[in-house]
Design a protein around this nucleic acid. Structure first.
Lengths: 333, 333
DNA sequence: AAGATTTGTGGTATCGTTTTCATAAAAGGA
DNA sequence: TCCTTTTATGAAAACGATACCACAAATCTT
C-alpha cells in the first residue's frame, strides 16, 4: 500500500513536503502542490490514521457503547449520535455489547488501544468497573440514561419517574381508578423508576395499583402473557399501563384475543413511542422519549469535554411528551 | 498515557520482553511474565492499535457501510454482523452513510486510512465509483443486496424477484384475481425486482395488475396515501401487495380508516417481516427476509476472502419464507 | 545595496510497536 | 568435560506520519 514515501518519490520531493500538502500547513508552492496531488490521486493514497495518531497524539475517534443495535431505540440513538459527531468532524466507533459483560470489557480495552478521544456509553446494567480504566487513561465519558455509580462523569438522563407520573396522571385524569401495570425487564433501573412514578401519582390520588406483573425478559411473548394474567382476574382493571411500548402492545393483543375492545373496555398506555406504536391498531397512546435530542445532547456534552470548552452552557435535557392516540379513553359504564 | 516503555521501565526489563509477554511469543520466564503483567495491571496499559498496525501491517478491522441504523432492517443486519465478526476476532467499524454520497466517500477514505482488512457494504443506491479505491488498495469487499456494477466483488443477494412471485402466488392461490400493488421507494432496485416478480406470476395466470402506486419516499404517510388512492377506485381490488411491510401497514390503516375489514373485504400482504408486522392488528402476512442469515453469510464470505481460504465452500444463501398471519384470506362474495 | 522578512524545501528525530539479531546462561548429549 | 540445543533477554531497525530545524531563494524595507 502506498505510503507518504511513495508519494514523495513519485512527486520527486520529500516526505516533509508531502505532509505539508496533506495538512495544508507551512509553505508549499503551487507547482509542488499540484505534483503531489497528482501523485496522490494516481495511487489512491490516504495517510495512515495509525501513524498519524502515533505521531500527533490527536484522536478524532469517539467510542460509542450500546447494549444492542437491533433494538430500534438504540439504532436510532446510534444513528443520531453518529450523524452529530460526523458534523463535528469526529469518527464514531460503534460497539454493541450484546448485553454481555465480557463484550463490554473487551470493547473498553479496545477503546483504550485505539486511543479514542472520548466515550459515550448508553444504558446497560452491567457494573461500572470497566469504566474506571477509561478514567485512569484520562478519557472523558458521557453516560446516557445510565448510572456509572460514583464514577465522575457527565450523564444525560431521562426522568423516568416523571414519565411514570405522566402515564398515571393521564389515566387518572380520564377517570380511571382501577389501574394495573405490566412491564419488563424487572431488573432495569429505568423500568423501576417509571413504576415509582406511577405509584406516587396513584398514592397522591388515594389509590393503589390494582395489579402488577413484571417480567424478566423484555419481549412481546412475555408481556403478552403477563397482560393476559392481569385481564383474567376478577375485578379486571379498566386501564393498563405498559412500562414500555412492547408491553403495551402485548396488552393490546391480550385484550384483543380476549374479545375486549380498546379503548371502550380497556385503556392502554405505553412508554417509548417506538415506530410500532403508531402502526398498531388502535394506535397506541404513549409517552415519547426524545431519543434524537438525547443523542445530540450527549454528543454536545462530550464535544465540550473533549475540546476543553469551559463555558458551562446549560444542556437542555429534552422533555418527555404525551402522545395521545387511540388506546385511552374514559372508562365506560 | 502509558506506553510499552513505561511498562518495561516499571518491570525493570526491555520493551522487547514486554512485547513478548503481550503477544505470547518467544521465550519469557515466569518470573518476568509476572512482573510485566503486574505493571500492566497497575497502569491499565493497553498496546496502541495504531503502532501495532504500523509495525505489523495486520489489521483486524472490518468496515461496515450501511445507509442507516435507524431503519430496523439495517440495525439488525449491523448487529448480527458485528456479533459474527466479534466471534471471529475481528473489530467492526460501523458507518452509516445517511444515504449521502459525500458521507459514503468520506467513509471509504477513512476505511483506507484506517487500513481496514475488508469491507462489507449493504445496499445503497449511490454509485460504485468510490469502491474502486478500495479495490485499488487491495481491500476485499462483500456487497449485501447491492450491485457494485462491474466491480469484481463477492455479493450476497436476496432474490427479490422470487419474493415478488411468492407474494403474488399466495394471493392467486387464495383465489384473488383483482390485485393491486403499493410500494416505495420507486427508484430502489430491490423494489423494482419484487414488482417484476409480481407481474410475472400474474401474467402466468393470465392476469394483470389492477392498480399500481409507487412512491418516492419510503414511509408510512406516503404509502398510506397511496394505498387510499388504490382503495378509492371503482372496481376496488380484493387484495393489495405491499412491496414492503411499511407499505402493507399503510394499506392496513387505509383500509381501516375507510371502514374496510381485513381480511374479509381486503387481503394484504407485505415484505420484510419487520417487528411491527407481528404487532399490528390484524397481524400482517408477509415474506420474511432472512436478515440474520444474510449478515452471517456476508461475514463468512469476507472471512474467507481475508484469510485467503481457497476452499470454495458453497454459501447457503438463505431462503425467503412466507409468514402466513391474519391479513390474507380468500376473497369473499 | 544591505539587512530583514517571507516563502519554499529537505533532513531527521520521534511516536509505540514488532521483529530480527546478537548474546548469554542453562540444560542436554556424547 | 566439551559441544550443541534450548531458554531467556536486550539492542536496534523498521513501520508511516508529523514537526522541528536548517538552509536557500525570493521579496520587502529603508
Amino acid at each position: 500500500m502506498a505510503s507518504i514515501k511513495t508519494i514523495a518519490h513519485l512527486a520527486g520531493t520529500s516526505v516533509a513536503s508531502v505532509s505539508r500538502v496533506i495538512n495544508n500547513s507551512g509553505y508549499v508552492s503551487d507547482r509542488l502542490r499540484a505534483k503531489v496531488e497528482g501523485a496522490i490521486a494516481e495511487t489512491n493514497y490516504r495517510p495512515s490514521t495509525g501513524a498519524r495518531l502515533l505521531r500527533s497524539g490527536k484522536s478524532d475517534l469517539v467510542g460509542i457503547l450500546l447494549p444492542s443495535l437491533d433494538v430500534q431505540f438504540f439504532g436510532i440513538l446510534a444513528h443520531t449520535m453518529e450523524q452529530a459527531l460526523f458534523e463535528l468532524g469526529y469518527q464514531s466507533f460503534i460497539c454493541s455489547t450484546a448485553e454481555s459483560g465480557a463484550h463490554e470489557a473487551r470493547y473498553i480495552a479496545t477503546f483504550i488501544s485505539r486511543r479514542v478521544g472520548g466515550v459515550i456509553a448508553a444504558s446497560a446494567e452491567s457494573g461500572a468497573a470497566h469504566f474506571s480504566q477509561l478514567q485512569a487513561n484520562g478519557i472523558p465519558i458521557v453516560a446516557i440514561d445510565r448510572d456509572l455509580n460514583g464514577l465522575e462523569s457527565d450523564a444525560v438522563i431521562i426522568d423516568h419517574d416523571l414519565g411514570g407520573q405522566m402515564m398515571a396522571k393521564h389515566l387518572i385524569d380520564l377517570g380511571h381508578r382501577n389501574i394495573a401495570v405490566v412491564g419488563a425487564p424487572a431488573h432495569s433501573q429505568s423500568i423501576q423508576r417509571r413504576l415509582t412514578g406511577v405509584t406516587t401519582v396513584l398514592a397522591q390520588n388515594g389509590s393503589t395499583l390494582s395489579g402488577l406483573e413484571l417480567g424478566h425478559l423484555h419481549n412481546f411473548e412475555e408481556t403478552y402473557r403477563l397482560a393476559k394474567l392481569l385481564l383474567d382476574r376478577t375485578n379486571r382493571p379498566t386501564a393498563i399501563i405498559g412500562l414500555t411500548d412492547i408491553a403495551a402492545i402485548g396488552a393490546i393483543h391480550a385484550a384483543h384475543d380476549l374479545g375486549l375492545s380498546v379503548p371502550q373496555d380497556l385503556s392502554i398506555i405505553g412508554f417509548d413511542d417506538i415506530p410500532s406504536a403508531a402502526f398498531v391498531l388502535p394506535r397506541l397512546t404513549t409517552i415519547a422519549q426524545p431519543i434524537r435530542q438525547l443523542g445530540r445532547s450527549a454528543v454536545a456534552r462530550l464535544h465540550r469535554l473533549m475540546s476543553n470548552d469551559q463555558s458551562a452552557e446549560i444542556e437542555t435535557v429534552p422533555d418527555l411528551r404525551l402522545i395521545h392516540r387511540e388506546t385511552t379513553a374514559p372508562p365506560c359504564c
